[in-house]
Design a protein around this nucleic acid. Structure first.
Lengths: 224, 224
DNA sequence: CCTACCGATCGGTAGG
DNA sequence: CCTACCGATCGGTAGG
């Protein structure tokens, strides 16, 4: 007897989830383009062919919508981080994997990252705290990786705290300059950033992969 | 005869400049604390013990005030960059100096940098273009330094464009996490970031300063 | 899920 | 340099 009711219910929930998702996406696009405060919910609704009260039946306020966007923003990076950690690799491979996945996540979720970086002052204090905690968690895990690699002697890092913040920063900042229409696609950018991360912690090409050593700068390149 | 008039005039100009400066500073503090849109000009005026129309007699609009803040933000970084370039050093020392001065500038002007990063969508199109150009100029000059060092064979960089954006990003991002009350003062952070920049471009400790080589990770540290 | 509306805020200005 | 004000915008809701 609850069978049919439940099916209905699950369908209903799916529809609700779908609508919430579409609203979120429309908001992300508009907030990214013109900024949270300049974007009216009426304009968000317009993009969906609906009206403002429609949005209010799925989100209870504008700031709740913003919080949902910001939360997803780091959630995605954290997810990649956790997936990489689970694989149990040596420190170099772990950092390579984490760096690459993190960079790809930022480039893929560029709009979300931009909104989070720009709009923190428009979050409710409680949401701000929650999101700050997630951010701290990410930084801690990254720091942990550097710590381990340093103890093993495969990383050479003067200050682990600063190094992890630097890595986080150089990757996160790409939301500002990356253009999908640019010279490199996301994957190529992530590759290069990963290599930069590795050399930042003192791992040079010959130490990490199977490639042959190129410890010394290739002076040959200049002359030829 | 123009003597006295001119003295008066110059005094008058100084007073105007002083007032404009105080208004700017108050705005920076408030915009940084609660965000541009949440800050009313009335509240800015309050901090100066004045009223809103007072501000309007020194700035013609709220957005002009924002543009002035953003412009100064990069102006400071560009100034440091240019000062460093003028000294004519070898590539390694030049990058070290630029990195250090740039990092210090960001940490010193943390509030300005934060506002610029967050509020670009609130700039007039013309101001946005102007500021974007200054930003591009900075990136170009940094890239130029990497280019030169690479050609000389002292830097080992896979992709100069990405590397310069990465350096710019890791330093700029510090506006987010740096706390003057934290573990390290500005100078110490700048030092560590500079070392990270250098190892990112393949310069290890032994190559740069007069210090003895420590090419290999110091495995000794672990065992002892 | 829409029409119609309110209430409050705030950038900017007149006028002195 | 202030008092007093306007005009417009927009988040949120009532009521259906």
């Amino acid at each position: 007897m609850p069978d049919r009711a439940q099916r209905n219910n699950s369908l209903r929930n799916e529809v609700i989830a779908l609508k919430r998702e579409r609203i979120l996406e429309a908001a992300v696009d508009l907030f990214y383009e013109i900024g949270y405060e300049n974007a009216t919910l009426e304009a968000v609704a317009d993009r969906l062919g609906a009206t403002k009260p429609f949005i209010y039946s799925y989100y209870k306020s504008k700031t709740e919508l913003l919080a949902a966007i910001c939360e997803r923003s780091i959630q995605e990076s954290l997810k990649e981080m956790d997936a990489a950690i689970e694989v149990e690799l040596d420190s170099v491979e772990l950092l390579r994997r984490v760096g690459h996945a993190f960079a790809l996540a930022v480039l893929r979720n560029q709009k979300y990252i931009a909104i989070m970086a720009r709009e923190e002052k428009n979050l409710l204090p409680e949401d701000f705290v929650h999101i700050s905690n997630m951010r701290r968690e990410f930084d801690q895990k990254l720091k942990q990786i550097l710590q381990q690699g340093s103890e093993e002697g495969v990383f050479e890092v003067e200050d682990i705290g600063i190094a992890s913040l630097a890595i986080g920063g150089m990757v996160s900042w790409s939301y500002i300059w990356y253009r999908p229409s640019g010279r490199l696609d996301r994957y190529a950018v992530a590759e290069r950033m990963t290599n930069l991360i590795l050399s930042m912690v003192g791992v040079t090409a010959c130490m990490s992969g199977s490639a042959s050593a190129r410890r010394k700068p290739t002076r040959a390149r200049k002359g030829t």
